[in-house]
Design a binder for these strands. Structure first.
Lengths: 345, 345
DNA sequence: GTGAAAGCGCTAACAA
DNA sequence: TTGTTAGCGCTTTCAC
């Protein structure tokens, strides 16, 4: 009744649907009906089958089901690095929301490498997942459009986004302008920008820098490139180094717009090491509203993207693609808020 | 040649191995041989097949392959919440190490609920993943042992661990003793403990508290329960509240051992709000060595588990189970180090 | 070295 | 309401 499956060295007895059917003295169809709670099943059948299932400890093998339905119930979530707080918090939200819709999440890290990003966009296998949510770091629009398979795909973030592909982000330029304007309206006049990449600037940093510049210009403040404190990598340490160096060079500023909360935390540290007070001497504003932003001392004012909405919109679009929608790429903005805490009240 | 597959509303043409075989004028076996780089394939065959693959843009469907091999190449990594820094950093390490071994990682969050943890241990479906790595938060040893399916399973962390199941952790009691002893040897005498759960204490907190107590007793210091600052949840905010309350009550201390780095960061904030200096007035030591621990001001001394080793050992054991090993549970300790930074030099 | 064919475990169209 | 059966796309003996 129960077959031994000699598989990769294991020799595990596996109960199959047929075994259940035999034990219950019914057909596989009836077992399937019971498992899927098909409406038109007699009570006697249902109990008899359930009994056999329980007795054998039968668990349906998803692979068989998937092969025939063609659906896997899995989604890939891909970005550079889960250990970055913004991504881990995003993963939590997307995973929860995907779970509510009956999907499980496959995590894929690209390490921000071109190779890793290419692997996400053009997998050499098919059928693994029903769709992909991907926040590219360095891949170009053209490359994404070229390498793309026909697997349903939704892009996140400020990076490349071909017209043909769905895309969700917040208005980065606008938000950066808001953040900078907030500092200006609280009386700051020498406002620096911290944490953009020093070598090859990401689209994220570019857009935020543009908003920063626009706010300054609108307020009639001259943009001073000595106030741009580039960082070697996206990390608090590197941002701290950048701010320290600026201080060493004698650069004066009374406000800092940071590319993200990690950079802001690095800036906080660099300022405090010099005995500068935040926000007394320098107001600091971050980006992402990671959990830690509320717990630093002083706590961080920050741009808070609505990640819940981001996840919902992205999953909505992905599900439409999975269901067969084949129109042009939709490009949607989701909300953000300026969360004001101690570092820039 | 290429079939249209009417699937869930989609109508996507899918290239199958048979299509490639037909176009190349060979059998499916030959196509399969080429795909798997089977050694004994003539050059002519190889190029002819490869040409057909390229021409059709054929990508093998993993579901078909998996159904016959019985292996999915996927592992589940399960714990309460990816957005907690320790878990997200662990996920990064495990994901990388799993990737090196040819596995992809399915992320499962339990939210620390019994329901979520039960779902991990006793899935109603089989065949989804080849194995499970799971860090339980609240499930009891007995329940894990009972609910366990025969899917390969490795447990992480200080929680429940039945004898029958593989398990990896660091020596929590020892590490807590080391951390506490470090504070004692730097002259601290009134040392508090911060961040254990206030309602139902986790195994993690218990073990760390035991080590803390042992170190004090060994040094001939009386354990003072007013120095135990329980926290409502595992978060910086709650730890900050706990420390603030203790300060309000007039509790005096010159050192704090924290359940984890989040608690330590909360403690830092609570102390700084009162104008207390760290480590001048109070030395603080955390646990986990999350990335942020190096960037706080002052930076955090902390217990650093060797998560790389943890991942390697866990995956080694899991792969042995997957390969068929069916012996008793192995319980292994991995290394940790005391990383000394500014908060407790 | 290559081809033919029998499944892997399940679903669903069609019959009864 | 339940049973029969033909695949889903691939791997893998076993012949040739």
């Amino acid at each position: 009744m129960v077959r031994a499956r000699p598989e990769a060295g294991r020799d595990v007895s596996v109960v199959r649907m047929e075994d259940v059917a035999k034990l219950a003295g019914v057909s596989m169809k009836s077992v399937s009906n019971v498992i899927h709670n098909y409406a038109h099943v007699s009570v006697g059948m249902r109990t008899r089958v359930q009994q056999a299932i329980d007795e054998l400890g039968y668990r349906p093998n998803v692979l068989g089901r998937r092969l025939v339905t063609g659906r896997t119930g899995m989604l890939t979530l891909a970005f550079s690095d889960v250990s970055l707080p913004y991504f881990s918090e995003l993963a939590r939200v997307v995973s929860s929301e995907a779970g509510r819709r009956g999907y499980r999440l496959l995590l894929e890290q690209t390490d921000g490498t071109l190779e890793g990003e290419r692997a996400v966009v053009s997998s050499s296998e098919s059928g693994l997942v029903d769709g992909v949510i991907f926040q590219p770091s360095i891949m170009s629009t053209i490359e994404i459009a070229q390498h793309r398979q026909d697997d349903p795909l939704v892009l996140l973030g400020e990076g490349a986004a071909p017209l043909s592909v769905d895309h969700v982000m917040i208005d980065n330029t606008g938000a950066a302008e808001d953040a900078t304007s907030h500092l200006i309206s609280s009386g700051r006049r020498r406002i620096g920008f911290v944490g953009q990449e020093d070598i090859k600037q990401s689209a994220t940093s570019s857009q935020r820098l543009i908003g920063y510049q626009q706010a300054l210009e609108r307020a009639g403040i001259r943009v001073d490139s000595s106030l741009l404190m580039a960082s070697h990598a996206i990390s608090s340490q590197d941002a701290a180094v950048a701010v320290s160096r600026a201080l060493d060079r004698g650069v004066k500023f009374d406000g800092l717009v940071c590319r993200d909360d990690l950079a802001a935390i690095g800036a906080l540290r660099a300022l405090q090491e010099r005995g500068l007070s935040v926000p007394g001497d320098v107001a600091v504003i971050g980006w992402d509203n990671i959990a830690m932003a509320a717990c630093t001392y002083p706590s961080l004012s920050t741009v808070a993207p609505d990640t819940k909405q981001l996840a919902v919109v992205a999953l909505d679009m992905l599900e439409e693609r999975i269901a067969g929608y084949a129109g042009l790429g939709r490009h949607r903005l989701v909300d953000y808020a300026l969360v004001l805490r101690e570092s820039a009240p």
